[in-house]
Design a protein around this nucleic acid. Sequence first.
DNA 1: CGAGTAATGTTATAAAGTAAACGCTGAAAA
DNA 2: TTTTCAGCGTTTACTTTATAACATTACTCG
Lengths: 144, 144
Amino acid sequence: MNAEELLSQAKESCKKRGARFTLAREQVFKLLTRHSGAVGAYDLLDELKLIDPAAKPATIYRALDFLNKQGFVHKIESLNSFVMCHHFSECNHPVQLLICDTCGHVEEIQSSNLDLALRSMADATGFTISHQIVEAHGACQTCS
Amino acid sequence: MNAEELLSQAKESCKKRGARFTLAREQVFKLLTRHSGAVGAYDLLDELKLIDPAAKPATIYRALDFLNKQGFVHKIESLNSFVMCHHFSECNHPVQLLICDTCGHVEEIQSSNLDLALRSMADATGFTISHQIVEAHGACQTCS
DNA sequence: CGAGTAATGTTATAAAGTAAACGCTGAAAA
DNA sequence: TTTTCAGCGTTTACTTTATAACATTACTCG
Ligand SMILES: [Zn+2]
Ligand SMILES: [Zn+2]
Ligand SMILES: [Zn+2]
Ligand SMILES: [Zn+2]
């Protein structure tokens, strides 16, 4: 899935939902598609400042908040950073990430077994899951 | 597992490994055992200041770092906070947490299915896991 | 004891994230 | 067409979380 495809898919998705894909949001979206790994909000801000020198932390955080709510972007809690989702057409999918600590690449996986195992364990203790965080750190194939 | 049992177990464990369970570390350990849920480093610092007014951020972070490395305490990445582990005798176990967003209680679960599902998915893509983060947010039984 | 290492104290600062007040704008209602 | 108003963006200031750097003290072991 390349950058343009993702962008048009995002626009389409917003149109359907009546959400506004404004310039600021599109700019941040595009910046994110240029990274294959995690990007910090302030790194992103530095990049955004090159095309919009007036950008401030709130600019980035608001855009990221929107993109995250639309499911276009995932937050990586263990790195305080963000990564583009390449499967956002599959709404509300559980997020499962393999994060290479060597090269920084982030791979999003989809294991229903994993999701099931977590849900069944939660069920067993009467816990209702609203949001799950699964992040594995280590070394990717090329870095091993 | 009550507070005293945990404490003596921790002391024992340090003795075996030749790690120093110093006063500062013990104080922070004790403060943590008094919480059933997540505690922020600065909240903990406020509590510590009551018995050691000279305590500074570094004091807490160093103690937490030690306790975390010994496996006595887990960091909750999605809350930037910390929780006592009640199973630290089982060394290096994968950490899987159910976090109630209503009452703040944190339940540590042990699902080998979950661990297996993650590992097998990682294997399939040639990824070697060194550390995993599994945190589910939602509502516990009493809060549902 | 004395050298070497581990831990702590202290100060300062970096990094990440949020709040609140206010102005702009563009599309729906009148 | 004009009004109006909710959503978006800007700006300023601030809070929370975490670490760096370096001096000092405490413990361990030969
Ligand atoms: Zn995704
Ligand atoms: Zn890699
Ligand atoms: Zn544990
Ligand atoms: Zn609860």
